[in-house]
């Protein structure tokens, strides 16, 4: 089976072609990052128009790279939410049109489900596994029991960790995107110079909170005066990163213990989403997994940030279970992972 995936739910326009033999035949992503880094933030592709301008070309490029024709596709998979609604609609309409014209099945994929299943494309991970999903917009701990069977064990009660990285970078005058910039700066920093509050320390459960940490960073930066030195910036970055990594690891530990007793034979902890590229966070999680006799699996960075290969793969997974969607499915701005079903 071979599936075309389309992703337009946020800032990236993407198209990819993936087979059920776990082969990524093409994975095209158009990101505005390089172009907009000078502004200190991605200029949002709210102009659904911008997705509209590029999605056809990306589909054509993906087909060319895969050496395939549209008529070769067994199905069209597309992100139907959650996300910026204008963008989601562009992808959904494109996919519906292709499915209609080609007479092929259409699969409506939840963007978070696509992140959640990526490790099965890259590492053939067996169900069930514990997933830590960390992106700009989401921080969640999920027991992934099967396709369409996602038990959300914890989520952020305020900001997502990726947002905390981006805003910390902004406060420190570091470039966008904040994750890599903070990680680079932190390398030369002393994490022990500033004591930042550890979110939800001593509280049971697996939820996250990063808003207070962001505020503490703002206060710390303010205390450094108008012109912090490079060392000051490095030290704050290091303190923030260590605190965020520790918080993620500590909350994941709670989830892992619950998960391991519910699924005594499960052996895999998966970290996915753009923030999974952070080395400090990976190290903490690898240590945690090791302590519990788990393996840590992290898809490569190109498949952790937003892409369409994950959408095509999630489409394949759903199609193998006979789960296809009608041409009139509605794009959804809000679509929590816990509401995704295998029906």
């Amino acid at each position: 089976m071979i599936v075309l995936g389309i992703e337009t739910s946020c800032d990236e326009t993407a198209a990819a072609i993936v087979t059920d033999a776990r082969e990524i035949r093409a994975n095209k992503v158009l990101s505005q990052l390089a172009e907009h880094a000078p502004y200190g933030g991605v200029v949002p592709e709210i102009a659904a128009r911008s997705h509209l301008d590029h999605v056809d070309r990306l589909v054509r490029e993906a087909l060319a790279e895969a050496g395939a024709k549209l008529s070769d596709m067994d199905a069209i998979a597309v992100t139907g939410g959650p996300g910026l609604i204008g963008g989601v609609i562009v992808g959904a309409v494109t996919a519906k049109t292709l499915a209609q014209v080609l007479g092929k099945p259409l699969i409506n994929v939840n963007h978070l489900e696509a992140h959640a299943l990526t490790c099965r494309l890259t590492h053939d991970v067996a169900f069930p596994y514990l997933l830590l999903l960390v992106t700009g917009g989401h921080s969640q701990l999920v027991a992934v029991e099967g396709v369409g069977r996602y038990r959300v064990m914890g989520t952020t009660i305020d900001d997502a960790v990726g947002e905390a990285f981006d805003k910390t970078a902004k406060l420190l005058g570091l470039p966008y995107p904040g994750g890599p910039a903070v990680e680079r700066a932190a390398k030369a920093g002393d994490a022990s110079r500033f004591a930042l509050p550890r979110p939800l320390l001593g509280k049971p459960g697996c939820d996250f909170s990063f808003s207070g940490l962001k505020t503490a960073v703002a206060q710390t930066v303010e205390g450094l005066g108008p012109a912090p030195s490079e060392q000051d910036v490095a030290d704050v970055a290091a303190a923030f990163q260590a605190t965020a990594a520790e918080a993620l690891s500590r909350r994941t530990r709670n989830a892992l213990e619950t998960f391991a007793s519910a699924f005594p034979r499960a052996r895999t902890l998966v970290v996915a989403g753009g923030v999974a590229a952070n080395g400090a966070i990976r190290n903490e999680l690898a240590a945690l997994a090791g302590e519990h006799g788990f393996d840590l699996v992290a898809p490569p960075p190109a498949l952790c940030s937003d892409n369409a290969a994950m959408v095509a793969w999630a489409g394949l997974e759903r199609m193998k279970l006979g789960l296809t969607d009608a041409l009139d499915f509605k794009a959804r701005p809000r679509w929590p992972l816990g509401e995704v079903r295998a029906t």
Binding site: I46, L84, G136, G137, H138, A160, P333
Partner: peptide
């Protein structure tokens, strides 16, 4: 609501 996420990335939540 199950979640009241920050709309920083999505720009709007309804």
């Amino acid at each position: 609501p199950a979640e009241v996420p920050s709309p920083t990335y999505t720009l709007v939540q309804v």
